[in-house]
Design a protein around this nucleic acid. Structure first.
Length: 671
DNA sequence: CTGACCCTTCCCAAG
DNA sequence: GAAGGGTCAG
């Protein structure tokens, strides 16, 4: 039942009153003060979406809603953190009791409490893509299915297929037919493998990323008492970036909201860019169909960009058919400078131009923090990275590799994961293969020997690791390493209780890993620093399981999500993919490789118009990140080691636009 | 059986 | 430009 919260307690007298009328425009104000029930807020790019959501939460708190009754679902953990911080600054309420985070982190939280109701044991491990691949490889190997000779999907591809099936809630056969027609005839084997994989995860007490969503949904479906409890707890649910939710996330929201709960979703269909991982724009387009009583609000004033930038963005997105028509208006005055279209002779000329222009802007007084270079694919940034480095321009980059996915971080974590979850086969394998003289075959034997011990099955750890591990037969060459491993594990669990995360990391590092790392990696120094950083970060956790969960849920290596030391606050230019730039803004934005085949990506436009339209939305996202200055760059020639020189055309997203929306810069020849 | 070495292949986006 | 896969010596 939606309750009329306007009748409840007024804000605490100590909190300064928020002047909602003054701090919000009319459209924002209407959304912020919307009555309970279901609400869809269509918020154009740069219209103050975060601002609105933040004030909505503050407004709820101001009107007597308790922090723990509010659930805020966001696309990244960083977004959640920032929003909750801003709420905290507004209302001085205890925002630590607010529930905020990504779907995965919230799902994880629910599962940490309730996984036993689903047959899992306490302290399950979280697998990333690589772990998932490893486990799937053993599943395929033990399945008896003959994958030789025919074109059978590799473990990585299987993982992708299963993930997509989970996220779209589509039956496997339909999914194969539409997205993987070349595997359609393997449906029986693939179905069987999916079942075996599911069993294996349960057996090893491991969850992959998708389980963090599918399992909570199962939990709520199969346990009415829990459904009722959480529906009651989360009286107000808010969802950011709703255009990028998938079917599964939508189900999760619908379950928690209940038939008549309070739900506010915010999004912009023009910025939906994740259909390839199962996002479904129809969630937002058909919101009113699922919730017939829903109120719809539109926020259509753009505060971010100068009109010149906005005109280009609007003209571009107008070429898409599938969208909610909006009328996005610029609030800022004209700048008197059109977006620049900059053709260049080559990739290196492009890098050189961008670096040069960055220096000029810096000379004019613009902070490096206010500049960003955006691109379609990570590798597009290679030349620029070198150029910036050689010119001494500071930059931060969001690479494709996440902090946790780096080999040395995962190695250290494998010890901890196994110590805490003794069924964790993947972590065991990873750990023992670090020992010189132990390869796949020995690791398998050792795992089987381990399974025969009581400790592997017992709920509570009985005895010491070393008592069980030392007697096991190992290759002569591996004896020393094996014994050392056993003693190290002893230090991780003391009297049946796990040590603290920093203690664990120290034991692992000093016991075995430092030696290994120095022998194995060229850049051992760099990696040692990473481990130290990991240890510092871990010191804020007392529960190692919570530490490991957080680690798995962190995103990019060098994003704000990184467990970074405080010193790294130096000004720097941002280099990032267009995808990861979502929700961010800079004074000057350079888009590079805006050439056909690169952006839009050749593969993305092969099939239907849908692929092309999503690419155009991604272009729209790119363009609308710019506040004042926008540079659209592309090299006329692409030098490739393999195929030689390839002539490039400007992106069709440029050539389809009226020419008077931009100004062509002629800097060729001089670079 | 392990691990070093070499060759080919493949690169789009991420929690 | 690295990562997976195949080959082969120890």
């Amino acid at each position: 039942m939606p309750r009329d919260y306007t009748l409840h307690t007024p804000p605490r007298p100590t909190a300064p009153r928020i002047e909602y009328r003054a701090e919000l425009n009319e459209q924002q104000h209407a959304a912020v003060t919307a009555p309970p029930g279901q609400t869809l807020v269509i918020a154009g790019a740069g219209s103050g979406k975060t601002h609105t959501l933040t004030y909505r939460v503050a407004w709820l708190l101001d009107n007597g809603v308790l922090p723990e009754q509010i659930l805020l679902l966001t696309f990244t953990n960083k977004a959640a953190r920032e929003m909750l911080e801003r709420v905290g600054a507004l209302v001085q309420a205890d925002t630590s009791r607010l529930w905020g985070g990504t779907f995965h982190s919230i799902g994880n939280k629910l599962l940490r409490w309730n996984a036993e109701r689903l047959g899992y044991r306490k302290g399950f491990s979280i697998m990333d893509r690589e772990d998932q691949k490893d486990l799937l490889e053993t599943v395929v190997a033990n399945s008896g299915i003959d994958t030789k000779g025919i074109r059978f999907p590799k473990a990585e591809v299987l993982g992708e297929i299963f993930s997509l099936a989970d996220n779209t809630c589509e039956p496997l056969d339909e999914l194969l037919a539409t997205r993987y027609p070349y595997f359609a005839e393997l449906i029986d084997d693939i179905t069987k493998l999916r079942g075996l994989y599911q069993e294996k995860k349960l057996e090893t007490n491991c969850m992959d990323f998708d389980d963090l969503l599918t399992q909570p949904v199962r939990l709520l479906r199969e346990h009415p008492d829990l459904l009722e409890r959480y529906q009651r707890q989360f009286e107000f649910i808010l969802v950011d970036e709703y255009q990028d939710t998938n079917r599964l996330q939508c189900e999760f929201i619908e379950l928690l909201t209940g038939p008549d709960g309070n739900l506010m979703v915010v999004g912009d269909d023009a910025q939906s860019i994740y259909s390839w991982r199962g996002a479904d724009v129809t969630n937002i387009l058909n919101f009113h169909k699922h919730w017939p009583k829903a109120r719809v609000f539109k926020i259509e004033v753009n505060y971010r960009s100068v009109p010149e930038v906005l005109s280009l963005a609007n003209a571009s997105i107008a070429n898409n058919r599938a969208q909610i028509r909006k009328n996005l208006q610029a609030a800022r005055p004209e700048k008197g400078m059109l977006p620049a279209l900059v053709p260049l002779d080559s990739g290196s000329a492009q890098a050189s131009f961008v670096a040069q222009r960055i220096l000029e802007l810096a000379d004019e007084g613009m902070s490096y923090d206010e500049m960003a270079v955006l691109y379609r694919a990570h590798f597009h940034s290679m030349e620029l990275q070198m150029e910036l480095t050689s010119r001494g321009i500071p930059f931060q980059i969001t690479s494709g590799l996440r902090f946790f996915e780096q080999a040395h971080i995962k190695d250290v974590a494998a010890f901890m994961k196994f110590a805490l979850n003794r069924q964790d086969e993947v972590s065991f394998m990873r750990m023992v293969k670090l020992i010189p003289g132990v390869g796949g075959a020995s690791a398998n034997k050792l795992w089987n020997a381990w399974l025969k011990t009581e400790a592997a099955r017992a709920e509570v750890m009985v005895g010491k690791f070393s008592d069980l591990l030392l007697p096991m037969p190992v290759p002569k060459k591996a004896r020393e390493g094996w014994d050392q491993l056993a003693y190290t594990l002893d230090e991780l669990i003391v009297d049946g209780k796990p040590a603290t995360p920093p203690e664990m990391i120290r034991s692992i590092y000093e016991g075995v890993y430092q030696d290994y790392m120095r022998a194995k990696f060229k850049n051992a120094d760099q990696r040692e620093q990473d481990i130290e950083q990991l240890s510092n970060y871990s010191s804020r956790f007392t529960d190692p399981l919570e530490f490991l969960s957080q680690l798995s849920l962190l995103s990019g290596v060098d994003t704000g999500d990184k467990p970074a030391p405080e010193e790294q606050e130096k000004e720097a230019v941002t280099l990032t993919t267009a995808h990861q730039a979502k929700g961010l803004e800079w004074q000057a934005v350079f888009a590079i490789w805006v050439a056909d085949g690169m952006f839009p990506h050749a593969r993305a436009v092969e099939g239907s118009d849908q692929g092309l339209e999503e690419e155009r939305r991604l272009f729209y996202v790119t363009v609308t990140r710019a506040k004042d200055e926008l540079y659209l760059c592309y090299p006329v020639v692409n030098h490739q080691a393999r195929d030689g020189d390839i002539l490039m055309r400007p992106s069709r997203f440029i050539s389809e636009l009226p020419a008077d929306l931009m100004e062509k810069w002629n800097v060729r020849g001089g670079w």
